[in-house]
Design a protein around this nucleic acid. Structure first.
Lengths: 250, 250
DNA sequence: TCATATTCACTCAAAAACAATCATATTATT
DNA sequence: AATAATATGATTGTTTTTGAGTGAATATGA
């Protein structure tokens, strides 16, 4: 077995389970302990993992991938369905704004064939955008570490130099009376700005966000097309009355 | 069997399995080891695969993690020494600009205790900056996928809204007559802009860059303090004459 | 705290893979 | 057909990878 192959297996197993024992790897790959140790040492040097006593662990940097591990898998199926529907609204050559957030992330795989230009404030989207070779611009400004989003007044004024065919936003609260809300006022302002600059606005949110409200208001529910799933029928009916809402069916 | 035929088989098998062993190919194609080695060397040169010990692997240029890593390890010890010296020039509370590039990356661990504010155009720095919880701003603009750097006119005009105490730049060529150079004119322009906006400029480059020149000129060697290692004495003497150069000793 | 059991880092020798060279075979050109 | 250009295969010595053995370092449980 090639060393490179071993490395790939180690990394993929790590990503699956978060940590891995040396003994486990010995059994599975049928190579000596010394070799595996060398492999781990190399991979550590490449900053692909961190060695711990007895094996290795993912290095959870607060950069690109953090938080993802907990959040990303929640409602993953729903998020993918939602993203798939959202993608159907995109036309060839559109210029679109992608908000930070995990639901919006799921939209990226659909973008390649649409040949779009993307502006985003979500640093976590970048690896994926690069993978699909999508023409990308990044909003300049201050980085909010906890969400890997770029926010602040600089970001707002940067954003206002552009116009978009469509914007795709994540949202924490969608309420029939209280409108679209998100906890951080800075983020709210950026979302609001993006909406004003876009011909069409889409809010992507799983149904757990329906009939919820958080601190800072972004806009009214009529300001955007809301795309969500059907796992929260009671809330859906409430909101359906007076909004442009699209519901994906599983 | 035609050479071209072999090449196609190699590539298709690679795409199937991700990696391939040389011994495997020998058995399957019934040609000598030497020939296959030559084949792999050629295909590698055409960037259709990457040779690894024992065979070959697909080169995954996807996103971040790989591709860069080959470079990361070259001269790593030197880069760390250089970064360490560069760090000694930083004062508490400085506002600094960090250029994209692997050498500059090594500077980041030293920044935490200095309590600096960082503006950078290097997306690859972000995970590390986040890890050390450094106050960070990102330059807005177009992303150049191959280097994960933000460049272009937007980036330049974004940059010019700021002033820095120090800037730390990577550089591809440092030549006593031809000055500081880098292959991409867009990147050169951004570096140049950063230098004009900074009170003090530092160029971080291992000694393999000395007495080399590439396409686009950034400035003269007197425009910045050059920090390099001592592994290229002949080039050092040439440059030492008329520049502010600092040499780290291993 | 101590004793025990893992786990670790290091060295060394064997094996595998490597690059370089040269002789031979194949193909192209005149 | 003769020659040149290229591709191939065998041989060589060198480098890299590997696995086993050793003692030191670290965790675990009494």
């Amino acid at each position: 077995m090639l060393a490179d192959e071993r490395h790939q297996i180690i990394i993929s197993k790590l990503k699956q389970q978060g940590t891995i024992k040396l003994t486990e790897l010995i059994e599975e790959l049928h190579v000596s302990e010394a070799t595996l140790r060398r492999d781990l040492a190399q991979l550590e040097k490449m900053k692909l993992l961190k060695r711990v006593h007895g094996g290795a662990a993912l290095l959870q940097r607060k950069g690109f991938e953090l938080g993802i591990h907990e959040k990303v898998h929640q409602f993953l199926a729903e998020k993918q369905e939602i993203a798939s529907m959202a993608a159907s609204y995109i036309n060839e050559g559109d210029c679109i704004y992608l908000d930070a957030g995990t639901t919006v992330s799921e939209l990226i795989p659909y973008l390649k064939e649409k040949n779009v230009t993307v502006l985003t404030n979500g640093l976590m989207h970048f690896p994926s955008l690069a993978e699909y070779e999508i023409k990308t611009m990044i909003v300049g400004g201050q980085v909010k570490v906890s969400t890997n989003a770029i926010i602040g007044s600089t970001a707002v004024s940067f954003l206002s130099q552009y116009r978009f065919d469509k914007c795709f936003l994540g949202m924490n609260g969608i309420h029939s009376q209280l409108g679209l809300t998100t906890p951080d006022p800075e983020e709210a302002l950026l979302k609001k700005t993006a909406m004003q600059l876009s011909s069409e606005c889409y809010v992507l949110a799983d149904s757990s966000k329906l009939n919820e409200a958080t601190f800072a208001k972004v806009g009214d529910i009529t300001d955007a097309v809301i795309i969500t799933d059907s796992n929260n029928q009671s809330a859906l009916e409430e909101i359906r009355k007076n909004s442009k809402i699209k519901v994906v069916t599983p």
